[in-house]
């Protein structure tokens, strides 16, 4: 039987679907009997989802328009200098 500490160590591997069948079974058995670990795994899923959501929620600002223009103009300068 896994300890809570061992369940916590395997949490990311479990929610990422990277655990083998035997380890997954061991985790499920522990979580069926341990409310603390069930909650912890739930927290780690929320953490993973919010971490991904941060990356998706980013919006372009006015300053990005300026940067994009700056990048493109540097590129054109480079081309002219290079012949």
């Amino acid at each position: 039987m896994l300890s809570c500490k061992e369940v916590a160590q395997r949490a990311s591997a479990m929610i990422d679907g990277e655990l083998g069948a035997w380890d997954t079974l061991q985790m499920r058995m522990h979580m069926a009997m341990c409310k603390g670990c069930e909650r912890f795994i739930g927290q780690m899923r929320i953490t993973r989802d919010l971490t991904e959501a941060v990356d998706e929620a980013e919006e372009l600002h006015d300053v990005d328009d300026l940067r994009i223009s700056a990048i493109l103009s540097q590129l054109h300068e480079g081309k002219q200098q290079g012949g």
Partner: peptide, 24 residues
């Protein structure tokens, strides 16, 4: 940051919270 979260037998010292209110 979980080093101090468990007792000598590897059990939670404090039960993790249920995060019902944590949403995007």
């Amino acid at each position: 940051n979980l080093a101090a979260a468990f007792d000598g037998r590897g059990r939670w010292k404090d039960m993790p919270e249920l995060w019902e209110e944590i949403t995007a």
